[in-house]
Deep mutational scan, measured.
Amino acid sequence: TTVHIGNVTYHFDNPEEAVKWAKEMAEKLGLRIEIHGDTIRVE
């Protein structure tokens, strides 16, 4: 599972961890997340 924040990509072996981490980052940055299969974007 990959999480994209701007130009930076993070890789997670556990999809649930990826979603949890992306949600925390989105809250901190005042952004929202979009999930497309195994790709998560924070925008």
Rank of each mutant, 00 (worst) to 15 (best):
A18V: 01
G30Q: 08
N7E: 12
R41Q: 06
E24L: 10
R32F: 10
Y10D: 01
A22H: 00
N7Y: 10
T39N: 07
N14F: 08
E43G: 15
G6M: 13
E16S: 12
D13T: 13
V3W: 01
E17C: 04
M25Q: 13
A22D: 00
E34V: 09
L29W: 07
E24K: 10
A26C: 03
H11F: 14
H4D: 05
Y10F: 10
H36M: 13
I33H: 04
I5S: 03
H36W: 11
N14I: 10
G30R: 00
M25C: 03
D38S: 13
Y10I: 11
N14G: 06
L31V: 10
V42K: 01
G37V: 03
K28N: 09
I33A: 06
N14K: 10
V8C: 05
A22T: 02
M25D: 01
K28P: 05
F12I: 02
I40N: 01
E43T: 13
G6D: 12
R41N: 08
I33K: 00
R32P: 14
D13S: 12
I35M: 08
D13V: 10
R41T: 13
A26F: 04
T1M: 15
D38L: 06
L29Q: 07
K20Q: 13
E24Q: 11
G30Y: 05
R41I: 15
T9C: 04
E34L: 05
G30L: 05
E43L: 14
V8Q: 14
L29F: 09
H11D: 06
E17S: 08
L31I: 05
V8F: 13
T39V: 14
N7D: 14
E24N: 08
V3L: 03
K20F: 08
R41K: 12
R41W: 15
R32A: 15
E16D: 13
H11A: 07
W21V: 03
H36L: 13
G30V: 04
V42Y: 02
I40T: 01
E16P: 05
R32T: 15
E24P: 02
E27T: 07
E27G: 07
I5D: 02
T1V: 14
M25V: 12
V19W: 13
F12M: 02
A22V: 03
G6F: 13
D13I: 10
G37M: 04
N14A: 08
I40V: 05
W21I: 03
T9A: 12
L29E: 10
T1H: 06
I35V: 11
A18E: 00
I40S: 01
K20S: 12
E43F: 15
R32K: 15
T1K: 06
M25K: 05
T2S: 09
E16L: 12
E43D: 10
N7K: 13
I40D: 01
V19L: 15
T39R: 05
P15H: 15
W21M: 04
D13Y: 09
T39E: 12
H11C: 05
E34A: 06
K20V: 10
E17T: 11
E16C: 04
T39Y: 07
R32V: 15
V3K: 00
A18D: 00
A18M: 02
K23S: 13
H4F: 14
G6T: 05
N7W: 08
V8E: 14
T2I: 12
M25N: 03
G30S: 06
E34P: 02
R41E: 05
I35L: 06
G37S: 04
V3E: 00
L29S: 07
E16N: 12
A26P: 00
K23H: 11
E17D: 11
K20A: 14
E34T: 13
I33S: 02
I5P: 00
L31Y: 15
I33D: 03
N7L: 10
E27L: 09
M25R: 04
V19C: 10
E27N: 09
T9W: 08
R32Q: 15
V42R: 00
P15E: 10
T1W: 11
I5K: 02
V42H: 01
H11N: 07
V19K: 08
V3T: 01
V8H: 14
R41F: 15
A22Q: 00
H36R: 09
G6N: 14
K23Q: 14
Y10T: 05
G30E: 07
H4W: 14
L31P: 01
P15R: 15
H36G: 05
A22S: 04
R32D: 15
R32C: 05
M25Y: 09
K28Q: 13
D38H: 11
E34G: 03
E16W: 10
V19Q: 07
L31Q: 08
G6R: 06
V3H: 00
A22P: 00
R41G: 03
T2N: 09
I40G: 01
E43I: 15
N14S: 12
Y10L: 07
K23C: 04
I33E: 03
A18R: 00
G6H: 13
G6Y: 10
N7C: 08
E24Y: 13
L31T: 13
W21C: 03
N14P: 01
I35Q: 07
E16V: 12
W21D: 00
V8Y: 12
I40P: 01
D38K: 05
I33C: 04
E27C: 04
K23Y: 13
I35S: 04
H36Y: 14
L29Y: 11
V3S: 00
T9H: 09
E17K: 09
L31H: 13
A26I: 02
I5Y: 06
I35D: 04
E16H: 12
G6C: 03
G30C: 04
H4E: 12
T39A: 07
N7Q: 12
V42S: 02
K20T: 12
E17I: 10
R41D: 04
G30H: 08
I5N: 02
E34M: 05
V19F: 14
F12C: 02
F12P: 00
K28M: 13
N7T: 11
H4N: 07
H11Q: 10
N14C: 03
K28F: 08
T9K: 13
V3Q: 00
A26Y: 03
A18N: 00
E43V: 15
V19T: 07
